[in-house]
Write a protein that binds this DNA or RNA. Structure first.
Lengths: 114, 114
DNA sequence: GCTCTATATTGCCAAAACAGAATATCTAAG
DNA sequence: CTTAGATATTCTGTTTTGGCAATATAGAGC
């Protein structure tokens, strides 16, 4: 029950759902997600922690960067199923469409290192 | 996006999930749910409102009683899918098992009209 | 060692969520 | 039309959440 509720709670925020929809297209680092969503960096880190605690997302350190990617869902049937459903769900959502369209223009080389 | 988040948020509370698991077995009125969960009546009504707003649940008035039942999900693909999944999910959850076991002993004739 | 830079953590605030007590509404029955 | 019981709504207090600014941490490179 706790695991299930944790996953549902993680999916109860539009920004977190947006992160998942973006990660369906590619791996992203924190500053890229920050640039895409237009919210503060600590806020992004906190959202990612919630998603990671729910096992919806995993991270891999690559030097200074931390790459976030979708979990394979092997640890939780809820995660596996919901991530599967989210492949089709929200594909036509205006906010998601806009995010995915500008995704190619967001590259860590241009965004960070200011 | 808003619809999806609303459904996820509705499923982010253990008591609300418990209500859904009970409604899988039979229609229930407010005071029966109250007795099963052991929480205050206004709290139950509020949870039911959240579930109804998310279209996870429907209600039918029957005189003084209001019977709550699971939605058929025809209004929302998220609802249809998640309610389908919840048929199998949490079947072995201790809290759910205990609730379902004592479900037969909870009848509105015995519970209400105090 | 020191300096950048990316990310995480902390602290704080406003808004939302959950709980119950008290109250209001509705309906059946007399 | 008055009462009694089932449910909904309001009110209030407490906890949780989402946001940001400020700070701390970690790794790359000098």
């Amino acid at each position: 029950m706790k695991d299930f509720v944790r996953v549902m709670k993680a999916l109860s925020d539009p920004n977190r759902v947006a992160i998942i929809k973006m990660l369906q297209h590619r791996v992203m680092c924190v500053c890229e997600i920050q640039a895409a969503l237009g919210i503060a960096q600590p806020t992004v880190s906190k959202h990612l922690k919630v998603l990671e605690d729910a096992e919806l997302v995993t991270s891999r350190k690559d030097g200074v960067w931390v790459n976030y990617l979708l979990s394979d869902g092997s640890g939780s049937p809820y995660v596996a199923t919901v991530l599967g459903n989210l492949r089709h769900w929200l594909e036509d959502d205006p906010q998601v469409v806009e995010l995915v369209e500008k995704l190619p223009t967001i590259q860590r080389e241009n965004i960070c290192k200011k």
